[in-house]
Simulated assay, not measured.
Amino acid sequence: MWNTPNLLTMLRILLIPVFVVVFYLDSPWASYVAAAVFGLAALTDWLDGYLARLWEQTSPLGAFLDPVADKLMVAVALVLLLQVDPRTLLALPAIVIIGREITVSALREWMAEIGARAKVAVSKTGKIKTTAQMVSIILLILRDTLFGPWVYDLGLFLLYVAAVLTLWSMILYLRAAWPSLSGQAERGG
């Protein structure tokens, strides 16, 4: 149960309060450290899954904790970023991303209850979305750094890319689940 992939997932959860504290520090280096903490969390997201498959250490605990850790870290980061920049321009993709995560999590839970969880498994689109999302958040955290305003603009652009991919992947999940949702699966078509 407490293998390396699961420990990496737990580390990601433990990094959330660290990220919050560093994000709010009144220091010229705070955004660099906050971006590094978020980047480390994003790296553990990739690494825990990779190691679990490589070392054949997948577990029910890991399958549960991994998506929870991802969604918590992203939601916390988006809320903090919105607090710093409460414009509609940032709020719209943040709402789409957080709303999608809630919707797809509920869909997966319901599909698991009826024994059809495999129909809403993670897709390649979801992995690309996650990458765009993680990179965009890191760039948005670096907003007031020496790199200049283009970093924030690129982060915002990538957040919109992530939001579009988020909607697209949600549509794909809903389409896959539609026969079960609409009752067509029970009627045989």
Rank of each mutant, 00 (worst) to 15 (best):
P17T: 09
A75K: 12
Q133W: 11
V76R: 14
M170I: 04
L81S: 10
S180F: 15
S169I: 06
L11Q: 11
T125L: 12
W150C: 00
K129N: 07
L47S: 01
R143N: 09
R53M: 05
F19S: 05
V161Y: 11
M170S: 10
P28Q: 10
W55M: 13
A177R: 09
E109S: 12
W150A: 02
D48E: 00
Q133E: 15
K119I: 00
L156H: 04
S180T: 08
P60N: 10
A163L: 11
D144H: 07
G183K: 00
E113N: 07
A163I: 11
T88V: 02
Y50H: 08
A30S: 15
K129W: 09
G115L: 00
G62T: 14
P67N: 09
Y152Q: 04
T44L: 04
P86E: 00
V33L: 15
I97W: 01
G49H: 02
L51I: 07
A34Q: 08
G99E: 02
A176M: 11
L72I: 06
R108P: 14
I138F: 12
P149T: 00
A176N: 14
L72A: 13
D48P: 02
V161G: 08
A176V: 10
V37F: 01
T4Y: 12
E101H: 08
V161I: 15
G49L: 04
L72Q: 06
S27C: 13
E186K: 06
